[in-house]
Design a protein around this nucleic acid. Structure first.
Lengths: 169, 169
DNA sequence: TATTGTTATACTCTATAACTATA
DNA sequence: TATAGTTATAGAGTATAACAATA
């Protein structure tokens, strides 16, 4: 019981490489944000949807599924819960009777504003351990990398405008 | 069907913030590494265990579970599969009859060496989109952050020696 | 009494398939 | 024929609870 940690011989491969590193950070983010957005249905998932819907023209469910990498078969349940909560609504597209566009409601905007403040605070507790410049560099590099990956992925939406705005190659 | 992507209005919150960013990167890592280590039981999970065991003194199962954030009840199944594969073995600890220390076998060392080369290549396809300096900065910052989080987490192993080697505060 | 390892069970999340309505 | 959305079902992954062995 004296020794609880792993031997220092693992310095060469801290934890177990990049996957361990990203896993630790993402898991912490998830825990913090889950606590921050408790109340909203489906926690971080529901928040991500509300956030996208709140900052873009009403997307279709298929677009949301592709963008957030959520299976299209689980989206209806989450959307239903968010509609019941009164933060989003389903709009019929006059141009295409098949699609349902997800729009944020007025109430949803106020909820989103509150949650964004809480999430910012939650992310501060995660990233705040890094000095300012390192933190900014980390977020910028991660964003850039994720958007390049996302843009290159054949099955998901291009998001090329975003890429240009950030400087992908 | 003309427009497939999301509106550029979401530039302010690319995707849906930090969670989206880390999720995209980690998911891509997982896909690539899963393909790279196919053959080893339990894919990336099995690889992470083999990697830790191959680079440290034989840890107990409880230590492995805490370090890799795997529930202690699923570890026996994974270890069983790795033992059946002949890459690790369970050793009894002379000092404590309860614990089973997991050690890599000779065969396991050759398998690990091969897999590490494949994983390095897989990670290159993930991170290779970033220019060299940005990539190094990203990995260094991510590592540092993850180790600080890990060290601060009360329920997991301290790993303080690792932290010192990298420069935590 | 607490801890390591194990097993069995239940629960959650995700993926598969099939159906409708539109195009 | 193909796509958007929905539903029901099956599977993988994860957590909960209980147990034996040891400290």
């Amino acid at each position: 019981m004296a020794e609880q940690g792993l031997n220092a011989a693992s310095v060469g491969i801290p934890g177990a490489g990049l996957g361990w590193t990203l896993g630790v950070i993402l898991r912490t983010w998830h825990e913090q944000v889950e606590a921050a957005v408790s109340g909203l249905p489906h926690g971080p998932r529901g928040y991500q949807i509300l956030s996208v819907v709140g900052h873009s023209d009403p997307p279709t469910q298929a677009q949301l599924a592709r963008h957030l990498n959520i299976d299209k078969t689980v989206l209806p349940y989450i959307i239903d819960a968010l509609v019941d909560d009164g933060v989003v609504e389903r709009l019929r597209d006059p141009a295409d009777g098949r699609v349902r566009r997800i729009a944020i409601t007025e109430h949803g905007r106020t909820v989103l504003a509150e949650l964004e403040a809480k999430v910012r605070a939650a992310e501060d507790t995660v990233l705040g351990r890094l000095p300012g410049t390192a933190r900014e560099a980390f977020v910028a590099n991660a964003s850039r990398l994720a958007m390049m990956i996302h843009a290159a992925h054949p099955t998901v939406d291009p998001c090329l405008e975003l890429l240009d705005a950030v400087g992908g190659e």
